[in-house]
């Protein structure tokens, strides 16, 4: 058993660094493709129409709900950093749990945001709880 798993472990080690950097780029790519037109290149949002992601207290206060928010979108009153917003956040039904993980990890580690990285496993579990 240990003998057989060794080559796999080596393979996994080799694959990991490449995999991580790819994923990080995937988060950024997805952000530019699906989110930046509204939330801005720097996550700055747009006045009181679109809430910021940079320095958003919503990201930390509602961390566990974010996978569902991104997947299903939202159109309700939402308070971010003390300011009320109410507009359409579109759904992203086509994004896989892995993509959502990379996207959230990108948002949560840029523009002054510093949350602990998420794993796909966490995100999958949180997605199961979506309403």
């Amino acid at each position: 058993m240990p003998r057989r798993s060794l080559p796999f472990a080596v393979l996994a080690l080799l694959a990991l660094p490449g995999c991580f950097s790819n994923n990080r780029h995937q988060g950024e790519r997805l952000y530019v493709q699906h989110c930046a037109s509204c939330h801005g290149d720097q996550g700055q949002g747009l006045e009181r129409l679109i809430p910021p992601l940079a320095g958003s207290d919503y990201l930390t206060d509602h961390r566990g709900e974010l996978p569902c928010l991104l997947r299903n979108g939202q159109n309700a009153v939402i308070v971010v950093n003390g300011i009320g917003y109410h507009n359409v956040m579109p759904s992203n039904k086509g994004l896989s749990p892995a993509q959502l993980t990379n996207l959230l990890n990108y948002i949560e580690s840029h523009w002054g945001n510093e949350a602990a990285p998420r794993t796909i496993h966490d995100v999958e579990k949180q997605l199961e709880g979506c309403r």
Binding site: S37, L46, E47, L49, V88, P90
Partner: peptide, 16 residues
């Protein structure tokens, strides 16, 4: 349009 999910926010941000 007010609920435009596409280019409008960027466009209005530019005009702003």
């Amino acid at each position: 349009f007010a609920t435009c999910p596409g280019i409008c926010p960027k466009l209005q941000s530019a005009l702003l």
